[in-house]
């Protein structure tokens, strides 16, 4: 199986992650061909999940299709990269019925478009107008600070690092003062 995939899709590497889990990364235009081949020839009948991971530094999303054989003993992660701007990849709903809801989820969370999926309506975020929340540029902390507030009465919080520094400086100063006082005292006694 590995040799066929390597030849046909010109990939260098098929990773064996565990006994029951393989992973391959292919070009974007070859991915559906590979999925269909796995499905027809190697009994990978079930689409378990479609996952997405945002690699913002490299300017792409990694979309992974996880397929499982019909005896459920082997899984295959088929991964491809798509650009972050106007992210878009064809829908799989014509082959796998359950892809509809998975794509709907990713559409809402990442703003990826799946041409061919008729039902990309909102899922759990009602009336959401900001950036799709799972994209890395969406900053949850900033959103919370802008939209929500802390409980009242929490302003007594001290910056501990500063406080430690201040106290240490204070102690040092006190010590120095004490030393000075001592020295002065001894000078006085010397003078006698």
């Amino acid at each position: 199986m590995f040799a066929t995939i390597k030849n046909r899709f010109a990939t260098t590497d098929i990773e064996v992650k565990r006994e029951d889990l393989y992973k391959v990364v292919v070009q974007r235009d070859a991915i559906f061909e590979l999925i269909f081949m796995l499905r027809e020839q190697y009994d990978y009948q079930t689409l378990n999940a479609i996952t997405c991971c945002d690699w913002i530094e490299e300017e792409h999303f990694a979309i992974t299709y996880i397929l499982t054989t019909s005896d459920r003993k082997q899984s295959f992660m088929v991964q491809t990269m798509i650009g972050r701007e106007d992210a878009q990849i064809d829908s799989l709903t014509h082959t796998f019925e359950q892809a509809e809801i998975m794509e709907r989820d990713l559409h809402e969370m990442y703003g990826i478009d799946f041409p061919g999926n008729q039902n990309l309506v909102e899922l759990s975020l009602e009336n959401w107008v900001h950036t799709p929340p799972l994209r890395r540029e969406f900053d949850t902390l900033e959103f919370v600070n802008n939209n929500l507030s802390f409980r009242e009465g929490r302003d007594g919080n001290m910056d501990v690092k500063k406080e430690m520094k201040r106290l240490r400086a204070l102690k040092k100063a006190q010590k120095a003062a004490a030393k000075k006082a001592k020295e002065e005292a001894s000078e006085v006694s010397d003078g006698n």
Partner: peptide, 15 residues
């Protein structure tokens, strides 16, 4: 970097 949960209910509740 990313943790995605695929529970049994997602497909059961919709499809």
């Amino acid at each position: 970097r990313r943790m995605q949960v695929r529970g049994p209910s997602l497909v059961h509740a919709f499809t």
